[in-house]
Simulated assay, not measured.
Amino acid sequence: MIKVTKLNGKSFRINSLFIEVVEAFPDTTITLTNGRKYVVKESEEEVSKLIKEFYKSVGLLGGRMVEEQNHEE
Results as ranks from 00 to 15, higher is better:
E68C: 04
S57R: 14
K52Y: 11
H71I: 11
P26V: 13
R36H: 10
T28Q: 05
S57D: 03
V4C: 05
E20K: 15
V4I: 12
Y55T: 04
S11I: 05
Y38R: 03
A24T: 08
V22M: 01
I2G: 11
G35L: 05
T28H: 02
T29H: 10
E67K: 02
E53C: 04
K3Q: 14
L60H: 03
I51E: 00
M1V: 02
E45G: 02
E73K: 00
R13N: 10
V39A: 03
N34L: 10
K41A: 07
N15D: 01
M65T: 07
F18L: 15
I14K: 02
G62M: 04
T28F: 05
E53S: 11
Y38A: 04
M1S: 05
E67Q: 12
S48H: 10
E67M: 06
V47K: 00
L50A: 05
L61V: 02
S48T: 11
T5R: 15
R13T: 14
G63A: 15
V21C: 13
V58K: 15
K49S: 08
I51W: 01
F54T: 00
K52G: 04
V47Y: 03
D27S: 08
Y55I: 08
R13V: 06
K56L: 08
K10W: 02
V22F: 01
E42Y: 01
L61N: 09
E23I: 13
G59Y: 10
F18A: 05
M1N: 01
T5Q: 13
L32I: 02
Q69F: 10
R13W: 09
T5V: 06
E23M: 12
V40E: 08
V39I: 14
I51D: 00
F25P: 01
K56Q: 05
S11A: 10
E45R: 00
I30M: 11
E72A: 00
N8E: 12
E72Y: 03
V40M: 13
L60N: 11
K52H: 04
E44Q: 09
S57L: 15
N34R: 08
E44Y: 07
E42I: 00
E46S: 07
Y38L: 14
T33M: 04
F12D: 09
Y38N: 09
N70Y: 13
S48K: 14
T31D: 07
T33H: 03
K3T: 00
N8V: 11
N8C: 11
V66E: 15
P26G: 12
K6Q: 11
E44R: 15
E67C: 07
K37M: 14
I51A: 04
I14S: 14
E68T: 01
V40C: 14
F12T: 09
M1H: 12
E68P: 01
H71E: 07
F12E: 10
K10N: 07
Y38D: 06
E44F: 13
V21Q: 14
F18D: 06
G35Y: 03
S43K: 14
Y38G: 07
I30W: 12
E44D: 10
K10Y: 12
N70W: 09
T31R: 02
S57P: 03
S16V: 11
E53M: 13
N34G: 08
V47E: 06
I19Q: 09
Q69Y: 08
K37A: 12
G35I: 00
K10F: 06
E53N: 10
N15Q: 09
L50W: 00
H71R: 15
T31E: 07
